[in-house]
Amino acid sequence: MAIVETRDVRKHFGDVHAVDGVNLTTKEGEFLVLLGPSGCGKTTLLRMVAGLEDPTGGEILIGGQVVNDLPPRARKIAMVFQSYALYPHMRVFDNIAFPLRAQGVPRAEIPHKVEWAAGLFGIEKLLHRKPRELSGGERQRVALARAVVREPAVFLLDEPLSNLDAKLRTSARDELQQFQRRIGTTTIYVTHDQVEAMGLGDRIAVMQGGKVRQIGTPQEVYDEPADTFVAGFLGSPPMNLLEIPDCLVGFRPEHFLPKEAHESRDGLLALKFHISRIEYLGADRLLYGALEGKFPDTKVISKLASTVSTPVQPGKTQDFAVREKDFRFFDRETGLRTRPRPV
């Protein structure tokens, strides 16, 4: 186990600043998720930790040691690639044994270790097969087994679930988390999928434009977004933002409910909502429309759980409300959180 730390790490490709001064420190045994849209620098950052890219500047530390000049093989890390990168010409057994052989583990110990790793993921029966004879889910397990087998200090995972179908992804997510808890190895996980990030991470580092916008527990980044980017990126649909004279005020769609649906009338801000369209999603309904009155023509979305029984109809204007304590305030220029003020 080890702590990974990056100090002002930068990576420039010509004029493009893919990673632009990132300071991060994992905790011992933590599951840290790097979350962000495509091109935000999360994969580049992970590759620098792995040693596959040289940083343009800054330092990377693993277990307290600066590893900038160490090749990937000397960093005591394991990585699972988005494509799994299984060696196509080797059987599953040899794939899993590969890191052991490469590191000169005594021959006699190899079968025992391979079986242990395969056992962790329930793939003992696949050991004699070639990767092309495996399904997507099986390949992913082989890739994980190959990563675990040499008991690395740090796990790096680059969108390992994105090639699985939706159903399999849910169960794989669950298995992955249980497995990480069991072995307790510090893990850095890259994804653009906020559901994965929220479900898996002990903490989430939200990245954009090569910078970390916020780092915190899933609850912190969702409930207390540090800026408008985080507020907009997390949550589906994203946070509604209204302009008031000196700042922006945001509230989550699930907090924007018909007036009657709120439990208490205290501390509510009433808003007239003209509903233009309703999307029925089973557990939820999404109401698209615009505000009237104080914020004319501001487009907002409301998310009603199926437990909310208040009738809503497209084409009508209805009384909606938000609890004042659910408002989040952001500076108009910088987009950063600012102090609350009356709306």
Partner: peptide, 15 residues
């Protein structure tokens, strides 16, 4: 040949 394969091998302990 995908680059990932070489990179995986490099992480797995090879030059």
């Amino acid at each position: 040949i995908p680059r990932d394969l070489e990179e995986a091998a490099m992480i797995d302990g090879l030059s």
